[in-house]
Design a protein around this nucleic acid. Sequence first.
DNA 1: GCCGGTCAAGGTCTT
DNA 2: AAGACCTTGACCGGC
Length: 296
Amino acid sequence: MKIGYPCINTMLGCCANRTFRLSSYSPARFVDTVHSNLDALRQILEYNVAQKLLFFRISSCIIPFASHDVVTVDWRAFFAPKLKSLGDYIRAHNIRISMHPDQFVVLNSPHEHIVENSVRELVYHASFLDSLGLDTTHKMQIHGGGAYGDKPQALQRFITTYKRLSTEVTQRLVIENDERIYSVQDCLFLYRELGIPLLFDVLHHECLNNGESVAEALAQALQTWNEKDGIGMIDYSSQAPQAKRGKHIQSLDENHFRMFLETTRHLDFDIMLEVKDKQESALKALKIAQDLKRII
DNA sequence: GCCGGTCAAGGTCTT
DNA sequence: AAGACCTTGACCGGC
């Protein structure tokens, strides 16, 4: 079991997701920003290794506007040495990486141009992970997309689009249950049709489910990961009190987390902690997992 | 320097 | 039909 946090370290004062306005694009600005992001990423990963936080989500804007036509710099070639060095570091320290292309990636949109842009975005993410020389246990996670008033039809469109994707994309792509439309059962349907692994999100499951307990749903999700995928990844969070359903809590609810680990003690998986205070809560979670002998 | 409006991209729900 | 929300920070222009 590994524990990690997404994209941002709130303590180090460096930032691996700097970007700029599209209208401010210039090759110089682009190169400068990417250098800065990659250097910051290295710094964060070194901190994580020192703390034994061996799971990390890299921000989608590590290479800003990478899937947009405006970028003329061949970033994979230009940054090849730095990318290789980062990848070597990740492998040497047995870090696991995920990425999460955001809400604009919608594979089942009825609009062809949206699907096209989504595919370009996935190609970029896969290409970035490839540029680090990482194997297919390093994943990119997306949601099912919209329902458009006809979920069965929307699921079919997902299947059709998925079958058009290149191996570079599908070998890294996993689907995450969301809190409004696509439940674990819906994602399992896609798994049976396509073989796409299911990344289980605890909080989303608590918002939208078909009556299965967290432990039952998680066990089903973990079975969708095969050897090439590595052990299952999950997103863990709990409900922010007195906030809208589905809102992530500010800081780890240690009792909730301990209970979650206890009810799932027969299972092994890597945990991405979706909590606002980032590494602070990840460190608390790590300690709890160590106390419960889930991490040696 | 600081503040607040704005930022490539979508979809759903509320008003 | 239009706006808020998701989730969130960082940018950038205006003071």
